[in-house]
């Protein structure tokens, strides 16, 4: 039986959007003849339940003659087909071309609800025959810095992943940084989750990467270094590296801005100090952004 993790889902309090019935708008009064023909055919297909055909015909009608009713129906069909990202975009286009629409509030609420629909994610590694394959059962799996699975987690198979062993999750839409730390190596990937859609996220790593420190984070523009002479572009972000045990301070830069140092307690033995930096401000501002820093000591040795 597939085990589905709803941890993050529960934490965010997001409900899964159920299938809503069709909500179509009638053909508009003024319509070019060709667009009207496509629109009518789309309507007929839709009513027969042939949604893919209906979608294609509505899109044709819209390209011939953009009209709010047409794009609204496109959004609706996309929603019923489970293409929520496309549906959100189409609803936004509806609001863009019908700024005075009477149902603006309703559509905005629907956009928000669709956008919050979680996606199903399967985290896996590559086939064992690949030298970069990771044995997830020996790993800490962290998502946005939170430990989700520890070594010894029972893996499941997924049909759409060729029965590869992995971990099933439900995650809100967005980009999720997945870090996998084993006694021998470290792998990372950024998983793009779309609302209501299925995503396979594969993580792989070289067979061996030494080091008692792993630093990860959400932004590509953040530089981590052990000394100030690090060249531009070189960074220890999303890497596992060696530094002497004890209290250590790492240089952090956000673009060209100096940030407060990252202080870590580096363990000796086989354990790993893990730090995750998540910026609070979503985009580039003219200073070092504020980071929420999560730290863990990942234990691979018996106490």
């Amino acid at each position: 039986m597939i085990r589905i993790a709803l941890i993050l889902l529960a934490a965010t309090g997001i409900a899964v959007a159920g299938p809503d019935p069709a909500q179509r708008k009638k053909a508009p009064d003024k319509f070019a003849k060709a667009a009207s023909a496509s629109f009518s055919a789309a309507l007929a297909a839709d009513q027969k339940g042939d949604l893919p055909t209906a979608l294609g015909l509505y899109q044709k009608a819209f390209e011939i003659s953009p009209h709010p009713s047409t794009i609204y129906n496109i959004a609706d069909v996309q929603r019923r087909l489970g293409k929520l990202t496309d549906s959100v975009r189409s609803y936004e286009m509806y609001l863009a071309i019908a700024p005075e629409a009477a149902d603006r509030r309703t559509v905005e609420t629907l956009i928000e609800k669709l956008g919050k629909t979680p996606g199903s994610v399967f985290v896996m590694s590559s086939r064992p025959s690949d030298r970069k394959s990771i044995d997830l059962s020996t790993a800490y799996v962290l998502i946005k810095g939170k430990i989700l699975f520890k070594p010894g987690t029972k893996l499941v198979g997924a049909v759409d992943a060729g029965d590869m062993p992995g971990i099933e999750l439900m995650l809100p839409a967005g980009v999720w940084e997945i870090d996998v730390v084993t006694p021998l190596t470290y792998g990372h990937t950024a998983c793009h989750v779309s609302p209501g859609e299925r995503t396979l996220c594969s993580v792989s790593a070289p067979p061996r990467i030494d080091g008692a420190v792993v630093v990860s984070g959400t932004h590509r523009n953040t530089t981590i270094a052990t000394d100030r002479k690090t060249r531009l572009g070189d960074t220890l972000m999303h890497s596992r590296f060696t530094t002497k045990p004890g209290r250590t301070k790492l240089h952090v830069r956000d673009g060209s801005y100096e940030c407060p140092a990252l202080v870590l307690e580096v363990p000796s033995g086989g354990d790993v100090a893990f730090a995750f930096l998540a910026e609070r401000e979503p985009s580039s501002v003219l200073r070092c952004r504020t980071f929420d820093i999560t730290k863990h000591r990942l234990r691979f040795t018996a106490d």
Partner: peptide
């Protein structure tokens, strides 16, 4: 909201902008 007189191309840009803005 977008102005009703915009071309489809401009509206596509507008929608792109709105979606990016809402995503942060």
């Amino acid at each position: 909201p977008a102005s009703a007189t915009n071309s489809t191309e401009a509206l596509e840009m507008f929608v792109d902008a709105i979606i990016a803005d809402k995503a942060g």
